[in-house]
Structure formats: C-alpha cells, structure tokens
C-alpha cells in the first residue's frame, strides 16, 4: 500500500527551490539592513561604524576617522523613505525566519484550487512587493497611498518575469474527492512548482487538462515525481493521488513532440458510465482528455476524438485540449527554459 505522502515530505522534496527563494530574500534583508544603518546617522556614527567594521585587529592600528572619510557612503535617505525601507525589511525578514507555513496551501472540499493557490501566491508576492517598495523608496518614488498595499500582497498576475523566475514552490493539500484545477494553468509559469496532495481524490486524471508544452505535469503516487519536478527547469505541477488514479508524466525536457514528452504508466480503468451523476462528468472529461493526449502522442488517428474536443469548445479546458492536439505535430511555441533561466 502506498502510504500517503505528508505535507512535510513534500516540503522537504522541494526544499532546494524554496531555499533559493529564501536566500534571495535573506540577501535583500542584509542589503536593506545596511541602508537602514548607514543612511541614518552622523559623521560620528560613521566613524564608529568604520571602527567596528575594521575589527579588533584594526583597532589602534587604523585610524577610524580617516578611514571613514575615505569610504563613500550611500546617499542619506529622507525619513519617510527609511520608514518604508524598515517596513519592507520587516516583511522580508518575517518570511525568512517564519518557517514553511506560507508555502503550504490547504484547499477545503469543493473549493477552487486555483483560487486558493492564487491567494497563496499573492500573499507570498508581498515579498516581491517589499522588494519593489525598497527600490521605490531608494529612488525617492515611494508614495504610501499608492504603494503600501504592496507590503500586503501582490497577485501573481502582477509578478514580472524576474519575479516569476524566482517563484517559490508550493505544497497544496486538497481535501475532498473532486479537485477543481482548471484555472491553475494561468499560474503555471516562471518557476512555479506545485506539489498537489489529494489523498481523497476520486478523479482518474485531474491533471490531464493542464498538460501544455512548456509545463512539467505529472500525477501518480510516488515521491520520486516530486524529485523530478524539483530538478526540471520548467514550471510544473505534480499531483500525488491514490493508487487507482491514472499515472503519467509530461516532461518538457523530452523533446519537441508530444510523443517524446508524455509517458503514461497506467491508465485508470474507471469506465465512462452513463449512470453516474452529473458530477462525474468532469472525471470522464479528464479521462477522455488523457486518452486524447495518448492518441495524439502515439500518432494514431484522432479524428473522431477531435470532434469530441470541438464539442468541448464552450469551456476553456476544451480549448486547451484542442490546441494541444493541433500542437502535437508542431514544435512548441513556448520555450521551456525562458522562464527558468
């Protein structure tokens, strides 16, 4: 029996990219710390700091006053800017020392996963917001009326390319049998990596709808998938599901053709069943999508199925699938590395 993968295990598997993110934050904390000290005080303070920075070996050997006079300090910032810097720094250091909690999102039964993940990323986005506040304050352009909200949250849609490239990984624990994932596609870029733990899922292939050329998408029940997600340069999502779900890996590193990227290890044999309730429609659809992908990947005729996809045009997932099918014989327009360089 595959034992359930804990939030802690998933966090541990994705520690390296989280470390990268936190390092960048910690380094900025250091940088701002210097500004806060350096720009604050007087001639005398500079001399004292010079003496301190030269250490005990320098004491009595290097004249701190003369030394201080040689060192060009950064320009003195006005009090309002310093105050903003201080607040930005507080936001940043809270993240550095605050433990893994902000990197875990829990989604209740029936809740929309994309909404919850979006909110989680927006909350983490306050780190980038704080970096922007710091930059604005240093440039003298900080206006609290306009910019203070950056210290609360910054929605993913407003992250720039550099910020996305540093996005921290998230562990998302989904309760309930039917995770609603479709909107996640918008969040899977830059360095975003999501470990989705859905131990109660009854969906056979919830991630099939997210398969897209530059994104690592895999579902299954083993921790190894998280290691592959971690080491992939692409953004991605891995769902850890109960054993009976389908298992597949879509790895952009595989190549230009869908057939090289997609490996299906196991196809759940939950049959499309007319007698099932409307709620199960989505499950069928996912499973069908996976089948379509397999057909496309193996180069077999998918005509009949394409028509089914056409039928699904009314919803975005259907559109995605249709596009995928078309794409299957074309080189991908999106560069897998561009976001993660």
């Amino acid at each position: 029996m595959q034992s359930e993968i804990s939030t802690e295990a998933a966090l541990a598997a994705l520690e390296q990219p989280r470390t990268l993110f936190l390092s960048a934050v910690a380094d900025l904390v250091g940088e701002l710390g210097r500004l806060l000290v350096q720009d604050r005080d007087s001639e005398q303070g500079r001399e004292q700091r010079s003496a301190a920075s030269l250490g005990a070996f320098g004491a009595g050997r290097v004249d701190a006053r003369r030394f201080a006079a040689l060192i060009s300090d950064r320009p003195v910032l006005p009090p309002a800017a310093l105050e903003a810097l201080g607040r930005a720094r507080a936001v940043l250091s809270a993240i550095v020392t605050g433990g893994p909690e902000p990197f875990v999102v829990v989604v209740g039964p029936g809740e929309d996963v994309a909404v919850a993940v979006g909110a989680g990323l927006a909350r983490l986005g306050r780190v980038f917001g704080a970096a922007r506040v710091a930059a604005l304050a240093r440039a003298g352009a900080y206006r609290s009326s306009e910019h203070a909200s950056l210290l609360e949250a910054l929605p993913f849609a407003r992250w720039n390319r550099g910020e996305r490239a540093l996005a921290p990984p998230l562990v998302v624990r989904v309760e309930g049998p039917r995770p609603r994932l479709s909107g996640l596609a918008d969040l899977l870029n830059g360095a975003v990596k999501i470990a989705l733990l859905a131990p109660a899922s009854e969906s056979p292939a919830p991630l099939a709808l997210l398969v897209s050329p530059g994104v690592f998408v895999a579902q299954g029940s083993s921790l190894d998938l998280l290691e592959r997600l971690r080491s992939s340069p692409a953004p991605g999502i891995v769902a850890i599901l109960p054993e009976r779900s389908s298992r597949f890996v879509h790895d952009p590193a595989g190549g230009d053709k869908l057939r090289d990227r997609l490996t299906v290890e196991y196809l759940s044999d939950v049959p499309p069943d007319d007698s099932r309730s409307r709620r199960d429609f989505r499950a069928d659809e996912e499973q069908a999508q996976l089948a379509l992908l397999i057909a496309a990947a193996s180069g077999g005729s998918a005509n009949g199925q394409v028509e089914r996809v056409e039928d699904l045009r009314s919803d975005p997932a259907g559109l995605l699938a249709a596009w995928l099918l078309r794409e299957a014989s074309l080189p991908p327009p999106v560069d897998a590395r561009a976001g993660a360089a």
Partner: peptide
C-alpha cells in the same frame, strides 16, 4: 545559499 542573487536583482528583471 551564499550567492548574491538578492531579490533586488530579480526585481530588476522587469518586463524589458
């Protein structure tokens, strides 16, 4: 991590 890829650098990675 010891390297200096401070957040400030990433912040600069605007959408140029």
């Amino acid at each position: 991590m010891n390297e200096l890829c401070s957040l400030a650098v990433y912040g600069a990675g605007d959408d140029r």
